[in-house]
Simulated assay, not measured.
Amino acid sequence: MSGIVAGRVVIVTGAGRGIGREHALAFAAEGAKVVVNDIGAGLDGSLAGESPAEQVVAEIKAAGGEAVVNGDDVADWAGAENLVRTAIDSFGALDILVNNAGFLRDKMLVSMSEEDWDNVIRVHLKGHFATLRHAAAYWRAESKAGNPRAARVINTSSGAGLYGSVGQGNYSAAKAAIAELTIQAAAEMKAYGVTVNAIAPSARTRMTTSSGDAMAAQMAAPEDGSFDAMDPANVSPLVVWLGSVESGSVSGRVFEVEGGIVSVTDGWQRSIKRDKGARWDPAELGPVVEDILAQAPTPMPVYGAR
């Protein structure tokens, strides 16, 4: 098959449903060989006894593409290693890693359990790191052996991670850390020819439609046949491009994607400052801080804040 990623090998985690499924199909449509990873978990991360990854692989093969199923837990160290090995054993290489897997355990911080916190951080944040770590080891070895690959990592952050989201403290913290992990990994992996970027998508998925009646109504497909801005397939074109050789000059960036809108999001950076040239007295800092904040950009509002 021809296409912008023809012949390249990609892993997509959490690819059995939603945005991950659309990524897998989009990569296959553009000629990539796809490892479809999914453990068939429910919305809260509990095992549902399903195998949606097999359905996605069957769909790719029916369209003339190449794909294999992987059911490893991305947050399990050995499982993440086996996931990378699946790509290499099945297709002879690995070029692209798309970290997408995750689930929700929404609660206000005052009501959140230790288990709610640990499980979400584990799957989102450790699940990104573990797969990235094993893929990076492979790409470093390839580079040192004189066979560097134009490798790409695309992580999945969220507007909740960039701006905060009431009732999603665990998810927001994990997604914020993923954005910073992206910047960190881009700097460290540059020497091996690997780029690392992240997306913060807004689309209709099991996660968004389960967030209450108002959110579900906002995410619903239009009944008049007009452009469906919340269709998860809208997110995948940018991810496929970021996985291509053409995107080699782009690394360490976080992009927001919603409908037909693509935007780049700036991370933490120094803004307004005042330098006394000596130690401040606590009593004199009130007007100084007030002046700094008055001139600094206004922060984006936290989702759901009143």
Rank of each mutant, 00 (worst) to 15 (best):
L97N: 12
S113R: 04
A187S: 14
N82G: 15
A177R: 00
G169K: 11
R105D: 03
E66S: 12
A137M: 14
A67D: 09
G127P: 13
V196F: 08
S165D: 11
V69D: 06
D116R: 06
R133M: 13
D73W: 04
T182P: 11
A141L: 14
S113F: 03
A135T: 07
N197I: 08
D95G: 06
F91E: 06
N197Q: 04
L181A: 12
H124C: 08
Y171M: 11
V123G: 08
V166N: 02
T131E: 00
W117F: 07
G127K: 02
L125K: 06
A186E: 04
A67W: 09
H134D: 15
D116W: 09
V74I: 15
S172W: 01
E81R: 14
A75C: 08
A191V: 14
K190P: 07
A130M: 12
D106F: 04
H134R: 13
N170G: 00
A130T: 10
K126G: 00
H128A: 12
I96A: 07
A67P: 07
V120H: 04
L94R: 00
T195S: 15
R149Y: 00
L181E: 06
A75E: 10
N70E: 01
W139A: 10
A185G: 05
F129T: 00
K126Y: 03
A150W: 10
R140W: 09
Y138R: 14
F91D: 02
V153R: 02
N82L: 05
I154T: 13
Y163D: 12
G146W: 05
A136D: 06
V166W: 00
A93C: 10
V68F: 10
W77P: 03
V194D: 04
L109Q: 10
A174K: 00
S90V: 01
V153A: 05
G159R: 13
K126E: 02
G102I: 05
L97Y: 01
A80F: 03
W77K: 09
F91K: 10
G102A: 01
G79W: 00
A160P: 11
S165Q: 15
V68W: 03
L109D: 07
G169C: 15
S111L: 15
V69I: 11
A177I: 01
W77A: 13
F103M: 10
A186S: 14
I178W: 09
K175T: 03
W77L: 12
E66L: 11
N100Y: 07
Y171K: 05
W77D: 14
S157C: 08
V194G: 08
R152D: 05
V196T: 08
A87G: 08
L109V: 15
I96Y: 04
A174W: 03
D95E: 12
D89S: 13
S143T: 15
W77M: 11
M189N: 06
A186V: 09
G102T: 03
V194M: 09
L104T: 14
E188M: 07
T182G: 04
N100I: 04
G92V: 00
T182M: 02
E142P: 10
A78G: 13
E142F: 03
A179C: 12
A87R: 01
N119F: 07
P148R: 00
S165I: 01
Y192M: 13
D106R: 01
